[in-house]
Design a protein around this nucleic acid. Sequence first.
DNA 1: GTCTATATGGCGATAGAC
DNA 2: GTCTATCGCCATATAGAC
Lengths: 201, 201
Amino acid sequence: MVTTHSSTEEKILEAAKSVFHRKGFDGTRMQEIADEAGINKALLHYYYRSKENLFDAVFKDAFNELFKKIFSIVGSTIPFEEKIRYIFSDYIGFMQKNPYIPSFILNEINHNPARIADLMKNLPTPPSEILTRVKKSLEDEGLKDIDHRQFIINIISLSIFPIIARPLLKSILNLTEEEYNEFIETRKKELPDFIFKAIHS
Amino acid sequence: MVTTHSSTEEKILEAAKSVFHRKGFDGTRMQEIADEAGINKALLHYYYRSKENLFDAVFKDAFNELFKKIFSIVGSTIPFEEKIRYIFSDYIGFMQKNPYIPSFILNEINHNPARIADLMKNLPTPPSEILTRVKKSLEDEGLKDIDHRQFIINIISLSIFPIIARPLLKSILNLTEEEYNEFIETRKKELPDFIFKAIHS
DNA sequence: GTCTATATGGCGATAGAC
DNA sequence: GTCTATCGCCATATAGAC
């Protein structure tokens, strides 16, 4: 599936990801993508008809990546507590490797909310199924009084926010780049226990 | 302090806030600001020399608003538990009234992290003082093993994320506008207890 | 497929009348 | 202070040679 020889089309898509993720649709220049791909601006339009087309490819890819990850974890059959630990370590780990994707997605959706409907259709697992699965997990754990929706949003909030607010939080907490990385590593380990204590009466 | 007769300059600033908050620097057109202010494009340049100048005024104002709020709560002398409850209800309440500000701030900082240093200088209370104050509060509560930085980030994450990810979460949870508002109201009430249970062993 | 050159439109900014 | 008209630039997109 993975080819080392990257065709021109692949080079363009990789360059487009790099620039769009960091600068968003409005902040991106086709020239910058061409430069990063090491090709000419006109070639972008040869492979992808327009900037919007190229952006759509990048956006859908990022959205699917972000959700494939969380869906595959939630959908697995490992025990509840283990699953929670796995979500934090694995999901935060993914975002550490792709730090621009979360804010890129949120931003572009906020700038154009109508886009969501289309994205939701192409997901491998519909969100509604994830929701009912989490609801059932909580019930099986004897946590019937926990609202599964609030529970999910709490986990996602605690995971994503420190990634998307990194520069601001780094400055507020007065941490270096390495110290902030360590701060995130600590979260991965401690957040599961934080959650368990919060939901077990 | 508040004048009902709004001068042209005030009208421009209000219009600029409205557009910049929603569309960010790159997505904003001076023409749109002029239209929303009900004046001519040339007048924008008469009062504010450039788009960057106008943006700076809007950005600094939003940043200060967002932090004035949280600092005034943390700095008050009310009891610990009450303070936590107050933060969630008041801070989330502020963001409900100004839903675009959080993502606007985060976004623009991510697009230009160098901007932070300048902003930090003009804050009424330096973040370091807030940090030590929270640290002391936790110690006074007999919660010495809680890292005050993780504690703060948890509270901020749980508050802000559902605001900035509103359109996405609304879609995932399959909620109407009103239902999502109710969802946020529920958070305001339940998050304090969630936190208390999590930190009290 | 890949390039250079150019068309086309839009945007920030200014000039100058009133 | 406020307007109309316009300049100058830059970005997307296309034409056309190789």
